[in-house]
Amino acid sequence: MDQPLIRLEGVHKRFGDLEVLRGIDLEVRRSEVVVIIGPSGSGKSTMLRCINGLEPIQGGRIFIEGVDITSSKTDINQIRQKAGMVFQQFNLFPHKTAIENLTLSPMKVQGKSRSEAEQIARDLLDKVGLSEKADDYPGTLSGGQQQRVAIARALAMQPDMMLFDEVTSALDPELVADVLNVMKTLALEGMTMVVVTHEMGFAREVGSRLIFMDEGLVVEEGDPRVMIENPREERTQKFLGMVL
């Protein structure tokens, strides 16, 4: 296979005195679904945010499709169009309708015409099962609906990979399934995904690789089905014992 879509080399990240990432190496290849688990404070969300250039790093390098995003010569806005990001708190634009949330960036950043952007947006809203909500404002949608719009918004930029940061953690339990189903569909279509989550069912069913992080390091990685049944490391066993 060709070069990995995402490559992290010895990534270090500090918030003041607190070292959140202590040398992370990671490779994600095309069409892989990498699921990242770990206790809160393990650095898993921070790592995801680093991949999208939302957090500057203090050491190491991050490559997206072979381009070093930590280099000052790299246009980070260009890179971000390749990696769609979905947040725990949805972060939809409350002053824009669902479809406007989807069309804004394709029009302003990629220079698409309104009609082209709307065509893409309608197809995506249909895909996440919300075509009838196109003209509604986010405030009138349920959490699960908002998160599906947020996924569609990231997809509207036609990215090569998607980053999911605990996207179901802020949802009521009965709304989680709809969001996970959308993510499953994406995975089946071959989308490259990095998913930070506590949903072990999703990891088992959809994940092509499972990574357990703790205290800023990758402790263990492997096939999700094998690793969930037979974790090698003691810390992984302890963590899985608590969440399963």
């Binding site: 972060n91 302003k108 950043v109």
Partner: peptide, 15 residues
């Protein structure tokens, strides 16, 4: 305005 708004916009490639 919550910082997440800025982050979401930046993550979509906006300057």
């Amino acid at each position: 305005i919550p910082h997440g708004q800025m982050e979401a916009a930046r993550s979509l490639g906006m300057t």
